[in-house]
Design a protein around this nucleic acid. Structure first.
Ligand code: SF4
Ligand code: SF4
Lengths: 135, 135
DNA sequence: GCTATTATAGACACACATTATCTATAATAG
DNA sequence: CTATTATAGATAATGTGTGTCTATAATAGC
């Protein structure tokens, strides 16, 4: 039950894009330079964020990535689900009792977990990060 | 970010052991009979529950598994952590900033998630399951 | 138009954890 | 002593995540 390494790359990138939002587009090579990840691999991850509508991409010279219009609304949940997809934590009971109490209980806890992540906005986190020594 | 199939086997088994607790020990072959899993593989999973102190095993004829003494206190969290271990959902920042706001936020949400699972007792779930058609 | 730059997509390989089987051993009841 | 049952080790199969390489498409600047 762990978040993938790709999600870490995505979150780190979102933080950088938010902190440098005023400077326009940023190329994947610059974004990858801040992390130990190849440009092509990070690009695949960022394409997921594009398709989820969290960031915008522009190909060609001086192109790159930038945040979407109302970027201040993007939450941790948005980024995590864009990368990880939407499968529930516990889903091994398809052909079994759908009213199973175990299933219901775990999904209830998961729902609260996701809702809490949905209240945490990247913009707020970035604002906090601006005030502490960072790498 | 999914719970393993093994955890499902473990939870299902705990439900059965709780519902048939008055009948003494139950062999792994009977427990496996209720699910699509081999006896040797389920045995490995149940050994984790034994080492975590959630159930008790007795080898030899008429042996098997039964719940521990104060079995009414066992929660979903106990079972999940016994099988899955204790690694945090998000732990890719060992050699980075330990005060990272992303890390802190996700771990805070995870903490609440685990605490909620820690309030859900298997005994209560079994009591509910007793009153509905089950397989 | 031409060229350099940059994102995107597909094929492919690699590493790793999960799942599962088989076999051997230890312990217990009768 | 024998049948039964849990435990442990070795090993294989499977699937997913991670990563690389190459080719293609789109854009800016000249
Ligand atoms: S009882 Fe619940 S957890 Fe067990 S197999 Fe049925 S649906 Fe799944
Ligand atoms: S900023 Fe936070 S999430 Fe990103 S690498 Fe550092 S510790 Fe990890």
């Amino acid at each position: 039950m762990k978040l993938s390494k790709s999600t870490h790359y995505a979150l780190h990138t979102m933080l950088h894009l938010t902190l440098s939002h005023a400077e326009g587009h940023t190329s994947v090579s610059k974004l990858a330079g801040h992390q130990q990840v190849s440009t092509t691999y990070l690009s695949k991850i960022l394409t997921k964020l594009v398709k989820a509508g969290l960031i915008v991409s522009v190909p060609g010279a001086n192109g790159g990535y930038k945040l979407k219009a109302n970027w201040k609304e993007t939450t941790l949940l948005d980024v995590i689900q864009a990368v990880e997809g939407l499968p529930p934590i516990f889903d091994y009971c398809e052909d079994h009792n759908p009213s199973c109490i175990i299933q219901q209980s775990i999904q209830k806890a998961e729902k609260n977990f996701l809702e809490e992540l949905g209240t945490m906005k990247i913009a707020d986190l970035a604002e906090d990060a601006r005030n502490v020594p960072h790498h």
